[in-house]
């Protein structure tokens, strides 16, 4: 059942943004994901971020790969062009699209399978090129769409629905990105819209590639005891392990400014979120990596803006391209013409 329910009659009290648009203008097709899927919450946060930033929907380009997560580009900003590409290759499509037209707002939505396994190389190179886009990974630790295989973000020892334990080290997209020059990395939690929306807005306003890893639980295949989440160390704000979230219910929890929030997953396992502390300096790359590693060792998942640098030029700035879209450069400026063709052929004689 879709979690984005659309009332037939728009409410008169709907807020309007600077463009005079309401949140309805940022909605898309009805979601076909499982009820309670974290991905739908990310979609909702994206809609709100776009709405709040007053971005005209038709100036948005939505790109994705393949997976439950990648389907979500259809579920928001219906007036925006969408591009549901092939598995893992979204960053390449985005690179080309951005090369052709730097004026649109690019939102890429991918999954942990899409971006950390089959498309890992493309993610890495998109980060290196600092193409200007918001790059969201709906990270659930599994391949949802192919029914629950481990993804590369699953922790060692986490078990699948069938009970097998994962033996291989996880890839943390933020650590990876930081190590290859990322200019914006952040993490959110699908259940914490309050924190996620500002992160997405910051990402949409970033000068280059803004990578936002969103922990987004899969209610179908990562909701059992033994999933990586229950391995996490409980520190503060502990929620009793007996707390049980009904399946089909979207997890909602607000990560506090300080300390760790333990969030019960659908199976009663827990995940521990820690917001970056007050006074945290998101401009120090080495410190950011250290902090992530440190917290990971404690079994915690850091949320918030982990690193940002607005001083690094994006692909276009590095390439010296025109301020407007390359695709709009008039033909007569692109084609040197007959006389020049005759002249340049002197060197072939």
């Amino acid at each position: 059942m879709p979690s984005i329910v659309k009332p037939l009659i728009p409410l008169a009290t709907l807020p309007r943004n600077d463009l005079g648009l309401t949140p309805r203008n940022y909605e898309g097709a009805m979601s076909t994901l499982c009820a309670g899927c974290g991905h739908d919450s990310v979609t909702a946060a994206l809609m709100q971020a776009l709405f709040e930033l007053s971005i005209p929907p038709y100036k948005v380009a939505k790109l994705s790969g393949i997976g439950c997560s990648s389907k979500t580009t259809a579920y928001f900003a219906g007036e925006a062009h969408g591009f549901n590409s092939v598995h893992g290759r979204m960053p390449t499509i985005a690179t080309g699209a951005i090369a052709a037209n730097r004026e649109l707002h690019y939102v890429g939505v991918s999954g942990d399978g899409d971006s950390l396994s089959i498309g890992l190389g493309h993610l890495a190179h998109a980060v290196r090129r600092n193409i200007r886009m918001l790059y969201v990974i709906d990270n659930n630790g599994v391949y949802g769409l192919t029914k629950g295989q481990f993804s590369a973000s699953a922790d060692i020892g986490s078990t699948s629905k069938k009970g097998e334990a994962n033996a291989f080290a996880p890839i943390d997209p933020l650590m990876l990105a930081l190590s290859i020059g990322a200019t914006f990395v952040a993490r959110g939690f699908s259940g914490d819209k309050e924190r996620l929306v500002p992160i997405l807005k910051a990402g949409l306003s970033h000068r280059g590639l803004a990578l936002v890893d969103v922990i987004s639980p899969c209610v179908q295949f990562n909701d059992h005891e033994g999933s990586t989440k229950s391995y996490l160390f409980v520190r503060e704000h502990e929620v009793s392990a007996t707390d049980f979230v009904e399946p089909r219910e979207t997890i909602v929890a607000h990560v506090p400014d300080q300390g760790v929030l333990a969030v019960p997953m659908h199976d009663g396992s827990q995940m521990h979120f820690r917001a970056v502390p007050a006074g945290y300096d998101p401009t120090d790359r080495a410190a950011a990596m250290h902090y992530l590693q440190d917290r990971h060792a404690q079994g915690e998942v850091v949320t918030g803006l982990v690193y940002a640098d607005e001083g690094v030029p994006d692909l276009h700035e590095l390439s010296g391209t025109p301020e407007g879209p390359l695709a709009a450069v008039p033909f007569d400026r692109l084609c040197p013409g007959a006389d020049e063709l005759a002249r340049l052929q002197d060197s072939f004689r």
Partner: peptide, 19 residues
């Protein structure tokens, strides 16, 4: 590009966008 898959992906993305 990082490989030929990416190269074609970029071409497709750019062409979709009118270049």
């Amino acid at each position: 590009a990082e490989d030929e898959l990416a190269a074609l992906g970029m071409v497709v993305g750019a062409s979709w966008n009118g270049a």
